[in-house]
């Protein structure tokens, strides 16, 4: 009994030495949470408060407006094209980079990350410089009556650019960590390359793919700067949801602007929930293995 008490007190005095006094702990926690409340919670709450300020009817009315509906359609279309393309790229890039070694790998990795360090405005500008009227391919495109910039294709191209690295940068470290033992075993046992990928690799990287796709999708639906440069802002034609929010806001139609913005805020919250769930799931998996 006395020995037990002794270890207990020894332990608690040890604990005391490697943590702060309770007052400091509480003080720091309050400051940190206060900072987050000020910069994260209040702005988020404000979106919904402004959206519902004039009641649910006005809110629903704003969402049912034809221009709003067409912007939602365009955003869904953009994400539906962008996400699968970047997913396919992410998986192929991760396969070649993580499962094989070759010279120039680090350079390739840096280049894949490049779109993250380019300002969104520049991401849009480069497509105007190529496909715009004064651009490199401009005269040819005009002669053949093809419109890319200030039309839907430009919006999709710019979105592909800004969301380019998401899936790849999620999968590469994951597949590198998993090594290639399991795939090699499958091959030696007579599986074909595709069988190996679908039966061995894919189940292993399932959560990484979901993680990358959900982040890629959030950015694709929410991108503003790059899309704003290439869109041309034609109401009901080339307006994505974020661009529509800007137009409504600049017309002082605040309730409608925040109503549409609340859709994007919902999307962000769902993204965070799925992201947290996947992180938890991966941790469980690591614990079990």
């Amino acid at each position: 009994m006395s020995a037990q008490t002794k270890t207990f007190t020894a332990k608690s005095s040890n604990n005391h030495r490697i943590t702060e006094p309770a007052v400091v702990r509480w003080g720091l926690t309050v400051i940190a949470l206060g900072f987050l409340a000020l910069f994260l919670v209040l702005p988020l709450a404000s979106v919904f408060s402004q959206a519902f300020e004039k009641g649910v009817d006005v809110y629903l009315e704003a969402l049912r407006e034809p221009d709003t509906l067409s912007s939602i359609k365009l955003t869904l279309l953009t994400a539906a094209v962008t996400v699968p393309l970047n997913l396919f790229f992410g998986v192929t890039a991760a396969w070649s980079i993580a499962k094989f070694s070759f010279p120039g790998k680090n350079l390739l990795l840096t280049l894949i990350d490049l779109p993250f360090s380019v300002s969104p405005v520049i991401s849009g500008l480069i497509y105007v410089l190529i496909f715009g009227l004064q651009g490199l391919l401009g005269p040819w495109l005009q002669a053949h009556d093809i419109k890319i910039v200030f039309a839907v294709p430009g919006i999709i191209l710019a979105t592909i650019f800004v969301t380019f690295p998401f899936v790849a940068r999620e999968l590469i470290p994951l597949m590198e960590a998993q090594g290639r033992d399991e795939e090699e075993a499958a091959m030696v046992l007579g599986a074909t390359g595709l069988q190996t990928f679908f039966r061995v690799t894919l189940p292993n990287i399932k959560w990484g793919i979901i993680y990358g796709v959900i982040l890629c999708n959030a950015r694709a639906m929410g991108e503003f700067g790059a899309v704003s440069v290439v869109s041309g802002h034609i109401r009901g034609m080339t307006n994505t949801v974020p661009l529509h929010v800007e137009i409504l806001y600049n017309e002082y139609n605040y309730t409608a602007a925040f109503a549409v913005a609340s859709l994007l805020a919902f999307l962000a919250l769902i993204t965070l929930v799925v992201k947290t769930f996947v992180e938890w799931k991966v941790q469980q998996q690591l614990k079990n293995s």
């Binding site: 988020l44 974020p242 994007l264 999307l267 965070l272």
Partner: peptide, 30 residues
């Protein structure tokens, strides 16, 4: 709170822009 830290990654920038300017405007919450 831990999950909420990533909000700026997930929230579209235009939404962040209009809500921050509302919250910090002279008659906003802050």
């Amino acid at each position: 709170v831990d999950a909420l830290v990533d909000l700026p990654f997930a929230l579209p920038t235009a939404v962040a822009g209009i809500t921050l300017s509302t919250v910090y405007s002279p008659n906003g919450w802050i």
